[in-house]
């Protein structure tokens, strides 16, 4: 196994503490076919499956890294990219579109410096665009961390989002 190259992820050293893995790996030590529970636990700890973590799991369990990636990309539960603590989904379906969703999207983007689909550098927010949540009567709308915001307006939704920790 090749050595982990820290340049691959500039945040690696600050944010990913591989110490947490020890406990998980100890718990499943010697268990047959424990890859999936190990990945599930690792994702629970780190919020997603960073490359460093997968490499460390591979090194310690001697499960080839390729196999881990094959498994991690197969199951919908696993995420390979870090997302924000707050997931903002703004609807840009037809009804929301004509009612001004693009303005809100633009305002959110400007306020937090994110592109649709992107995550802020401090991993606070992830902005996603969705197409029709089936509540056109409430257009334009957004769903923030499962909470529905109806009739959103650019300034108000930004203020609302700023209030989140």
């Amino acid at each position: 196994m090749r050595k982990n190259n820290p340049r691959d992820n500039p945040f690696a050293e600050e944010t990913i503490d591989l110490k947490h893995l020890e406990k998980i790996l100890d718990e499943f030590k010697g268990q047959k076919g424990a890859i999936i529970p190990v990945l599930q636990r690792a994702q629970y700890v780190y919020g997603y499956l960073p490359k460093e973590v997968l490499q460390a799991i591979s090194r310690k369990t001697r499960v080839p890294l390729t196999r881990l990636y094959g498994v991690a990309t197969f199951y919908a539960q696993f995420r390979l990219a870090r997302r924000g603590r707050h997931i903002i989904r703004v609807c840009d379906g037809t009804a929301c579109h004509v009612r001004g969703a693009p303005q809100s999207i633009e305002a959110i983007g400007k306020a937090f410096q994110i592109e649709p689909g992107g995550t802020t550098p401090d991993y606070k927010y992830t902005l996603e665009i969705v197409y029709c949540i089936g509540s056109c009567g409430l257009a334009p709308m957004a769903v923030v961390n499962e909470k529905v915001h109806a009739n959103i307006e650019p300034d108000k939704i930004v203020d609302e989002l700023k209030k989140l920790d």
């Binding site: 529970p37 197969f74 199951y75 539960q77 696993f78």
Partner: peptide, 13 residues
């Protein structure tokens, strides 16, 4: 007769 049960969680497939 001996019998043990284990739970395996799926991962979304």
């Amino acid at each position: 007769f001996h019998f043990n049960l284990h739970i395996k969680e799926g991962a979304g497939a």
